[in-house]
C-alpha cells in the first residue's frame, strides 16, 4: 500500500468528506436491524462504520456501498446520529471521481424504469456531475467487474 493511501489518511478522507464522526459509534447494530437492503449487502451498515475506523480500503471493493437506497432509516434510529448513507456516498464518490460509470443505459431499463429512478441512479452510479480527478488512483482496490458482478443467484430479469 502506498503511503498516499495509508489506513489513517483514507479514514481521515472519508471522515472529512462525509462530515461524520465514525469514532462515536456504539456498534449497537440498530442501523443493520432496520436496513431494508442489509439482507443483500456483503458488508452490513454497522460493519461499514467499524471498517471506516480500522480498514477502510476493504469498503472500496464492497457491494454494500452501491446497494444503499438512502432511505435514512439508519440515521433516524442511530443513537449517535451517524449518517451512514453519507459515508457510503463519500466512498462511492472516491471511486466515481475517477470518471467511471456503473450504470448501463440498456433499452430494457430505459423502457421499464420511470424517469425518476433513472435520474436518481444517475446521481448515484455515474460520475457525470463529479469533478473528475485523474490523480486519484484507486484501481488497485477495486475492479469494475467486482462491483458489477450480480449478487449470487440474481439475474437482471
Amino acid at each position: 500500500m502506498s503511503s498516499q493511501y495509508s489506513k489513517e489518511s483514507l479514514t481521515k478522507k472519508i471522515v472529512e468528506a462525509s462530515g461524520q464522526n465514525v469514532f462515536s459509534c456504539n456498534l449497537c447494530g440498530k442501523c443493520t436491524a432496520g436496513c431494508p437492503v442489509a439482507g443483500v449487502m456483503d458488508i452490513k451498515p454497522h460493519q461499514v462504520v467499524r471498517l471506516v475506523q480500522i480498514e477502510p480500503k476493504i469498503l472500496l471493493s464492497s457491494k454494500a456501498i452501491w446497494l444503499c437506497a438512502c432511505c435514512l432509516a439508519c440515521v433516524t434510529r442511530c443513537p449517535k446520529q451517524i449518517d451512514i448513507p453519507k459515508l457510503m456516498e463519500s466512498l462511492r464518490t472516491m471511486i466515481l471521481s475517477k470518471g467511471v460509470d456503473f450504470l448501463e443505459y440498456t433499452q430494457d431499463l430505459l423502457t421499464l424504469l420511470p424517469i425518476q429512478a433513472m435520474v436518481a441512479a444517475k446521481g448515484r452510479y455515474t460520475s457525470v456531475n463529479l469533478p473528475v480527478r485523474q490523480s486519484v488512483r484507486l484501481e488497485k482496490y477495486f475492479t469494475r467487474e467486482r462491483i458489477k458482478a450480480p449478487i449470487k443467484g440474481e439475474t437482471h430479469n
Binding site: 431494508p36 437492503v37 439482507g39 443483500v40 452501491w66 446497494l67 437506497a69 438512502c70 432511505c71 456503473f102 450504470l103 431499463l109 421499464l112 424504469l113 425518476q116 429512478a117 433513472m118 436518481a120 441512479a121 448515484r124 452510479y125 450480480p150 449478487i151 440474481e154 437482471h156 430479469n157
Partner: peptide, 11 residues
Amino acid sequence: GSYLAAVSFDA
C-alpha cells in the same frame, strides 16, 4: 428500494 431497480431487481 426506490431507485435500486436500476441495479438490482432482487432488493
